[in-house]
Amino acid sequence: MIQLLRIELYKIFKRPRTYISFGIVAAITFVIQLAMLTDGKTFIGFAIQGINEQFDIQGNMLNGYLVTYIILQSLLIHIPLLVALVAGDSLAGEANMGTLRLLLTKPITRPKLVLIKFVSSFLYTVLLIIWLAVVALFFSILLFGTGDMINLKSEAFIMILKDDVLWRYFAAFGFATLAMTTIASLALMLSAFADNSIGPIISTMGIVVVLTILSNLEIPLFSHIKPYLFTTHMIGWKGFFDEPIPYAAIGKSCMVLVAYTVGFLATTIFYFNRKDIKT
């Protein structure tokens, strides 16, 4: 099992396109950091003008913690595409190259193969999130320093003391890993349905985009289905930057994401077990 996992990881990290994801994460992060370095104070000034009418806020508001939050807010929408690039290719890519049938001649059950593909996609996701944490958090702290973090919500101004911030980021990155694992399991399921990798990757992104729009639309028609969409719960990481932290809501989001992940994985195993492999 470990040997097969090693082989899967070798296949993932041998491909140059795997590193494109890491490059894209770094590029977007550095662009936002550059924008914040040059124009961040204007952005903050605009954002807090309502507060500034009544209160004077002194100190380094544009610190690494706030910049990281802005980066995550912008970037975690795009990470699903990068996860789908690998997970969507894992079964369909093999089928496309004609290696799936050969692979299944080995003494390994189909469910086990699906699980190995899932674990390798999960490990890739974890590495991508760790990379995001390094370039976003570490470099932002390096460039902008640390300090108390402000969280500007549409109807609330939240301030978190600097000693209380870092653990929230670790929790948020942990939550983001869970959310991206759900995407990986969705892409893997779609990958089992297809014989070429483009279809599952585009389908995953299509589903994510459509459901994200539904999750964000303030229309009563969709208010009943919103709590059941995984995209509604993918932004649960933001809850760690609220005060008080809505643990119940975060826990509920975690359960929904775990349920979707298990559901997608079970469907993949069920379907792949019965699939007629022709390539």
Binding site: F46, I51, N151, L152, K153, E155, S215, F241
Partner: peptide
């Protein structure tokens, strides 16, 4: 009152 435009806000859906 305080109100920030949604485009700038860092809202969480469970608000």
């Amino acid at each position: 009152d305080y109100k920030l435009p949604k485009g700038v806000a860092m809202d969480y859906n469970d608000d």
